[in-house]
């Protein structure tokens, strides 16, 4: 796979994940504003999220979109601001993506299961 193909595919993935994120952020904000009217306790939150697999599915998509979008952007910032390019920068970006996916999915599992 040439660099041109990789870059073109990464750009495409970042664009698709950005579209998903735009939608997810809007839904997330709307639900949050709706849910906290008149205050909200941890017990109430868990009462709504436990066993709610639709909620779990939505946030799993949200987390995965972040895990794709963020590392691609971080690699660009590393290249342009720090001059950090190449394999080590790519590996660091993949590691960030893995970390976001791992921590995010664990959090989703924690409030749904």
């Amino acid at each position: 796979m040439t660099s041109a193909i990789t870059q073109a595919r990464l750009w495409y993935l970042q664009r698709i994940s950005a579209m998903l994120l735009a939608l997810c952020v809007l839904v997330h904000l709307a639900v949050m504003i709706y849910a906290v009217r008149g205050g909200l306790s941890a017990a109430e939150i868990l009462g709504r999220t436990r066993g709610n697999w639709f909620f779990g599915g939505f946030y799993a998509v949200f987390v995965l979109a972040c895990a794709v979008h963020v590392p691609i952007g971080l690699a660009t910032i590393a290249a342009e601001w720090l001059g950090w390019r190449g394999r080590s920068a790519g590996m660091a970006a993949i590691l960030c993506g893995g970390l976001i996916a791992g921590m995010g999915l664990r959090a989703v599992y924690g409030v749904v299961a």
Partner: peptide, 12 residues
């Protein structure tokens, strides 16, 4: 298309 793609091309 090959010449303009990649990290020296349009994608950056």
């Amino acid at each position: 298309l090959n010449a303009v793609a990649g990290d020296a091309g349009c994608h950056v």
